[in-house]
C-alpha cells in the first residue's frame, strides 16, 4: 500500500544506518601488509593534546569505597604493520609508577597511587584491568598487520581517606616491537 511505502523505506534506511554505525565501531581492522614495519599508538579521541581523565569525589563520600567513574570514554588504538613474510608482534604496556598522582598544593606531600584506578573496556579487545603501579605492566599483544581499537571507561576506587586537594599525574602507554 502506498501509505505504507514511505515508513517502510524509512525503517529500512534506519536499519541500514544502524547497521552501518555498528560496523563503524568494529574494533579490529585487517590492514595491508607493509614492507617497512610500522607501528602507531593513539590515546584519546582526536587532535594532538594529551587527554585528561578527571574524577571528583563528593564531600560526603571520601574514602567510602564507592568507586567514582569518570565521564566519557577514552579511545585506545594500536596499529602494527609488517610484511607477510616477516610478521611482527606488538606489545602494549603501561607505566603507572613513574608519574604518580600528586597533590598540586606545594605544601602537601600527599599522593594517590595509580592502583586506585581501573578501567572497563567497551569491547574487550584491549581488555579491562587496573593499573598496578608498575613501570612495565603488560596490557595486551597483537600480531601484524592489524589495527585494534577499544574504548576505556576509568574508575577511581575511592578507598583512601586522603587530604583535600587536586591530584594530578599521568600514565604512559608504550606500544613496542622488540
Amino acid at each position: 500500500m502506498p501509505g505504507h511505502t514511505l515508513p517502510t523505506v524509512l525503517k529500512s534506511l534506519l536499519l541500514v544506518c544502524a547497521l552501518w554505525c555498528a560496523m563503524a565501531d568494529a574494533v579490529v581492522f585487517n590492514l595491508n601488509n607493509r614492507a617497512t614495519p610500522r607501528i602507531n599508538i593513539r590515546v584519546g579521541a582526536a587532535g594532538s593534546n594529551i587527554t585528561e581523565v578527571a574524577f571528583t569525589v563528593p564531600a560526603g563520600q571520601i574514602g567510602d569505597n564507592n568507586p567514582i567513574t569518570a565521564a566519557g570514554r577514552v579511545r585506545i588504538q594500536v596499529l602494527i604493520r609488517a610484511s607477510a613474510a616477516n610478521p611482527l608482534t606488538g606489545f602494549l604496556t603501561v607505566d603507572s609508577l613513574s608519574n604518580p598522582l600528586e597533590n598540586t598544593d606545594p605544601g602537601s606531600t600527599s599522593s594517590i597511587p595509580f592502583s586506585e584506578i581501573s578501567w572497563t573496556a567497551r569491547d574487550g579487545d584491549i581488555p579491562s584491568g587496573a593499573f598496578q603501579d608498575e613501570i612495565d605492566q603488560d596490557i595486551v599483544s597483537f600480531q601484524s598487520s592489524q589495527r585494534y581499537r577499544d574504548f576505556h571507561t576509568f574508575s577511581y576506587a575511592n578507598t583512601l581517606e586522603i587530604e583535600s586537594g587536586t591530584y594530578e599525574g599521568h600514565v604512559i602507554y608504550t606500544w613496542a616491537v622488540p
Binding site: P37, I39, I41, I50, T166
Partner: peptide, 27 residues
C-alpha cells in the same frame, strides 16, 4: 578529549608511546 598519538617505523625494535593524564579532586 584530545589524543596523543605517536608512530615509529623502520627496522625493529620499534617503540611508540602516548600519555594519558589523570586528575582527582578531593574536597
Amino acid at each position: 578529549l584530545l589524543a596523543e598519538a605517536t608512530s615509529d617505523d623502520g627496522a625493529t625494535p620499534l617503540s611508540a608511546a602516548a600519555r594519558l593524564d589523570f586528575q582527582i579532586n578531593i574536597p
